[in-house]
Structure formats: C-alpha cells, structure tokens
Computed example of a mutant assay.
Amino acid sequence: MVFSGVWGRAVAAVALLSLAGSMVTADCTEDAMIVFDGSGSMAEMGFNQIGEPRIFDARRAVRIALPQIAPNRRIGLIVYGPGARSDACSGIDLKFTPRTDAAAPVIAAIDGLQPEGQTALTEAVDLAARTLDHTRKPATIVLVTDGKETCGGQTCALAAEGVATTVHVIGFKVRGDHFGWQGQNDYSTTISVAECLAAETGGEYVNTETVDELVAAMERTLGCALLY
C-alpha cells in the first residue's frame, strides 16, 4: 500500500522512529577494544550439543560483522588463551591498539587463531581498559566469551573497582557444567560469569547461539547509530 500527502509523511516518520529505536546508540568517536576468547574451550565439540568447534562460527561472524563496523570507529583487539608462556593462563595477547579500518587485521587474527589455554578473561578485560586509558576518557570494550573465568580472576570485583568504561559482554554458546550422575548431563545454555561486567558498567549482556545472533550482537555493541 502506498501512502501520500500528510498520511504518507506520518507513516514514514513512524517507520523512521521505529528503525532508529532499533539501532545501536554507541558514540563512535569513542575507541573500542574487542576482547576475544581464544581459549581451548572454543575448540570443543560433540559432548555439549555443539556440532562443530565454536571458533568456526565465530570466524564466520567476524568476517560478516567487522567490514560493516570498522569503517565507523577505531577498534583494537586482545585475544586470550593461545600463546601461553609461563603457564596456561598467561596467553593474553594485545594484537593491536585501536586503529582505523581495523576489519582486515581483526579478521586475519581470528582466522589464524588456534584455540588453546585457559580463560583469563578478567585479566584480559583489565588490559583492555588500561589500553583504552579508561580513567581519562570514555571508551567501549566488547568481550566475546564462551563462559567461565578459569584463571582465578575476580571478574565482578574488577567491575566493582571501577573500570571506567562501558563493557558489553557477548556470551557465545555458553554452557553449564556438563557432568551429571547416571548420564543426566546439563547441556543447557547458561549465563557467563562476566555478565556482572556489563551490569556494573552500563553495558549489555547478550547470549548468542548462531552466526546470525553473534553478528547482530557485534553490530549492536560495536556499531554506530545512523544519522539522518
């Protein structure tokens, strides 16, 4: 149906407001850091209702999302898990600080990632905040994780201590404990321990299971509102 005149303008205005309400409201003058889970659990499959390693879908999502996001804001990347030196929790790698047009280096880093090591997400987020100089200027951190902190970090204490930046947390195929007596295993999705980082810093927590959901979550937390 085609509307014209006053009614047409009214319908168009309502549609525009609806679209704007669904868009991300991030300020893209703020630098952002992606903190990406590269721990060994990203390679898990088979016993927790995951048909192939999480990293496969994560790579696909990054290839789709980043070319749409990166032209509009400066983005940096930290990966935790692989490359441990002194112990399994020491693999925290600052790939690069926020830069313009970061899609290609982010995609290359995630495509080349071979998951291993433990989940030192608290220390990785702390490094991201310090890299962004969080006590002096606003910024955004987007943590992509499949669940738990396994390196003893006090995740919620980090938020309570005042990481003065917005932390969004994307839980990707997060699972509960999979052990149970007499085969009664819990394969259900659950909430990452890092949810408190989002709650305490004014960010969002988003649970995702599919490539499309992960793409949408990255666009929502890293993307920018359209200006008309």
Rank of each mutant, 00 (worst) to 15 (best):
D146V: 00
A129M: 07
L121P: 05
V106D: 10
G153C: 06
Q154L: 07
G153R: 03
A129I: 02
D87Y: 02
D93N: 11
A139R: 06
F96T: 11
L127R: 05
A103F: 04
A70M: 02
A109C: 06
I69E: 08
G83M: 05
V125R: 10
D146S: 02
L132A: 01
Y80P: 02
P138Q: 01
A129N: 11
Q154K: 04
I110K: 12
A157C: 00
A103T: 05
Y80R: 07
G147I: 02
A129H: 09
Q118R: 05
P71H: 05
V106M: 13
C151N: 03
L132W: 04
R85T: 13
I92S: 15
G76W: 07
L143N: 14
R99Q: 15
P105R: 01
L66S: 03
A88E: 08
L113S: 07
A159G: 15
D126L: 04
V125P: 13
P82I: 01
A120T: 00
V142E: 15
G81N: 10
A88N: 05
A124G: 07
C156E: 01
E161W: 05
T135E: 12
P67N: 04
L113W: 07
E123H: 02
R130N: 12
T131P: 09
G81W: 11
L121T: 01
L94W: 11
T145I: 04
V163K: 06
D146A: 04
C151T: 03
G91C: 06
G91D: 09
G76Y: 03
